[in-house]
């Protein structure tokens, strides 16, 4: 990774006014991430941890309250008008639910045409040619152009949604749970489409998901988010094999096994309770209220980020021990 990141998020903060007067919901708090050209990066965490808000803030669907989003080194907040629109085009979003992200009254052709018009393709012939190309890229027959989106299945609709975001030649796709609304037998097809797009078009992908197994296989690197903060990030294999944060470790261990022989050996569920409110996050380490390893020090100050191996960081005072296998949030729990 000697080349420059295509997307760089620096100390990004998104906060919303709370219903409690004078208080704020810190949905995203001081988050920095990087995305290199042509890589798929996972962003995982429980619901309410701010992962969708982070994605939405990056593309400008939410307003950042602090921090910067740099696309190819250019700070998007310094741009306006046509320059901003041009940059935004390079940054596309794929939504979770392909049933609500497409207009039922449009045909597939119209839906894609709209995106191409925005891209400035004036000639109708040119647009038809490009639409054909896009449909092919996402694995739909070009005869699909004349069908209404409402006639399509979930998997097909998600392909149309992807074709639409590809229409403007983006460099970065932010995919927010793009396959969780799809049936299991269809999921693999759409996942393989993402892998192919990454290889063929070199599109970088921020893959927001709660399905950890899916992310491990698709992403080269993973960010783990908890209550508005990135608690750990690293290369997927390394992070899945040697997690350095108790939250990552427990999250990974709570994925159910298909094999009943393995599943029946499982002890009590690991992570107790749920994510606390982001309006009043715990002092110090935000995970401490659910962490079996928490000590007094955790409440006093936010833990520093430890570098565990190249490009693998975790924000926990025990990170080196956890990473080295000298300590475990799982064993502690069982005792």
């Amino acid at each position: 990774m000697t080349h420059a990141p295509v997307l760089k998020v620096e100390n990004l903060q998104t906060r919303f006014k709370s219903v409690q007067r004078g208080k704020y919901v810190h949905a995203v708090d001081d988050v920095s991430i990087e995305l290199y050209p042509g890589e798929i990066v996972g962003l995982v965490g429980e619901s309410g941890c701010g992962k969708s808000t982070l994605g939405r803030t990056i593309v400008g669907l939410e307003k950042a309250s602090a921090g910067r989003v740099l696309l190819d080194g250019v700070d998007l907040s310094t741009l306006s008008g046509a320059a901003l629109r041009n940059s935004r085009r390079a940054l596309q979003y794929v939504f979770q639910d392909p049933y609500s992200s497409l207009n039922d009254r449009q045909t597939v052709g119209e839906a894609i045409d709209e995106a191409l018009l925005i891209d400035g393709l004036r000639s109708a012939d040119e647009r038809t040619r490009r639409a054909k190309e896009l449909l092919e890229q996402v694995g739909l027959p070009h005869t699909a152009r004349d069908r209404h989106t409402r006639e399509l299945s979930g998997g097909q609709r998600q392909r149309v949604a992807i074709a639409r975001s590809l229409a403007v030649n983006p460099r970065v796709l932010i995919c927010d749970e793009p396959v969780s609304a799809l049936d299991l037998s269809i999921r693999a097809q759409v996942m393989n489409l993402f892998l192919r797009l990454q290889k063929d078009l070199g599109v970088a992908c921020l893959f927001i998901a709660h399905d950890l197994a899916l992310v491990r296989q698709a992403a080269s690197r993973v960010y783990v988010m908890y209550l508005g903060k990135i608690v750990e990030h690293g290369p997927s294999q390394e992070l899945y094999d040697h997690p350095g944060h108790p939250y990552s470790q427990m999250l990974l261990a709570s994925v159910p096994e298909v094999d009943p022989r393995v599943e029946k050996l499982r002890s009590a569920p690991l992570l107790k309770g749920e994510v606390p409110s982001p309006t009043n996050p715990p002092s110090g380490c935000r995970f401490r209220t659910r962490c079996p390893l928490a000590v007094e020090d955790c409440a006093l100050r936010a833990p520093a980020s430890h570098v565990l191996s190249p490009d693998h960081n975790a924000a926990c005072i025990f990170a080196p021990d956890l990473h080295g296998g000298k300590r475990s949030a799982l064993i502690h729990q069982a005792a």
């Binding site: 798929i40 037998s185 693999a188 197994a213 296989q217």
Partner: peptide, 20 residues
């Protein structure tokens, strides 16, 4: 079709062809 821990990173996802 369920991804397994030993599937190589970046490898094709196994699935079923076609649609129900």
């Amino acid at each position: 079709a369920i991804p397994r821990r030993d599937d190589p990173i970046g490898s094709e996802f196994r699935g079923l062809p076609g649609v129900p």
